[in-house]
Amino acid sequence: MRTLKSQEVYIPLKDAIMQSGVVLPDDILLGIEKAKREEEDGPALSVLKHITDNLSIAGKKHIPLCQDTGMVILFVSIGQELIIEGDPLEKVLYRAVEDAYEKGLFRKSVVEDPLKDRKNSGNNLPPVIYYDFLPGDRLIIKGLLKGFGSENCSRVFMLKPTDGREKVIESVVSAVRDAGGAPCPPVVLGIGIGGTMDYAAKLSKKALLRKLDQHHPDPYYSDLEKEILDQVNATGIGSGGVGGKTSALGVKIEKFPTHIAGLPVAVSVNCWADRRLEISL
């Protein structure tokens, strides 16, 4: 068994959250640069230029690149030969989120009750957490700071088992088309196919954790990722929704077995400000 002190989890997680609200991952930066190179002169190019200016200002002045610093989603994978000493793990995760938002001067965007009085929790707690287990003694935490301009455009489709590939593509493209400029395109799409309604939705978030160039290992699905990306870009929605060549930076699919009677498809829409984090301990 390996022992990890709770502080050894808290510090890197807090730092990773603070970093991810200010600086985007390299694959996203490359994607934005590529979109800029390919865009013709016009409103969409102006959007992309302002996006790159914004990223440089955020980095230089250490302020959040977007005021919607999101709700935190964490995927926590715990090695079964690992003991965490000190505070309970969930308490440590909460403290890392709370302190990162306070120290990073991130906006607290979480309300305590979704319906009743919608009072701000004041500390961006709670995060949404998914746990799973790993063989070995590692702790891997991956996460997203999920903005809600894009999250409001996420969708679940309970398709028929015989609907097939074309209907999956059509459903995803319809979600992006309906979203238009609202989710801050060029978007990143996480797609969950299979499982149950809730599990497909979880898979769509898990898909968002991968880098843009980490394609699905099964060629059938990596081809589907490419086909969806091409069709989304063919909509002409463009950066900011003002019309242009790049409507999405990437499409990532996760799949799971499902029931003979169904074909759940969930689409998580993320903005170009695709704020991911990952720590491996």
């Binding site: 959007v47 200016d53 903005c271």
Partner: peptide, 8 residues
């Protein structure tokens, strides 16, 4: 206004 460009 340019979406996501809070720092700018």
């Amino acid at each position: 206004a340019f979406g996501g460009c809070g720092a700018l």
